[in-house]
């Protein structure tokens, strides 16, 4: 069971949340100049690190707010929680956005 610190509600149990996958993705623009390979990578290729991953979580069965989590995919330890539009915190700067 993950214990996830919602920035608005404090620490709550995992079933209240939903993981929204990789964070900080930027849609390639302008659309008419995007190569097929770039577009395919944007649609399908995700970070899949054995280590710290930057991902979105929604408190879908709670306050329904979304936020960013830096979580270790081996230990499941949550190493940082930050706002949806915040930059990557310095403490997890090694992780690829």
């Amino acid at each position: 069971m993950l214990r996830i610190p919602c920035p608005w509600c404090g620490p709550r149990d995992e079933p209240e949340f939903q993981c929204g996958g990789q964070s900080h993705m930027v849609r390639p623009e302008p659309w008419h100049e995007v190569a097929e390979a770039t577009w395919g990578d944007y649609l399908f290729t995700r970070q899949n690190p054995k280590g710290v991953h930057l991902e979105r979580w929604g408190h879908v069965n709670g306050c329904r707010q979304w936020f960013n989590v830096a979580r270790n995919t081996v230990t499941h330890e949550i190493v940082a929680v930050y706002g949806m539009t915040d930059p990557v915190p310095a403490s997890v700067a090694g992780a690829k956005p």
Binding site: M1, E14, Q18, K50, H53, E55, R71, T73, V74, H76
Partner: peptide
């Protein structure tokens, strides 16, 4: 378990 994991144990929910 619907989040990335390399831990070969699974979670309780």
């Amino acid at each position: 378990d619907h989040y990335l994991s390399y831990a070969q144990r699974g979670n309780t929910p």
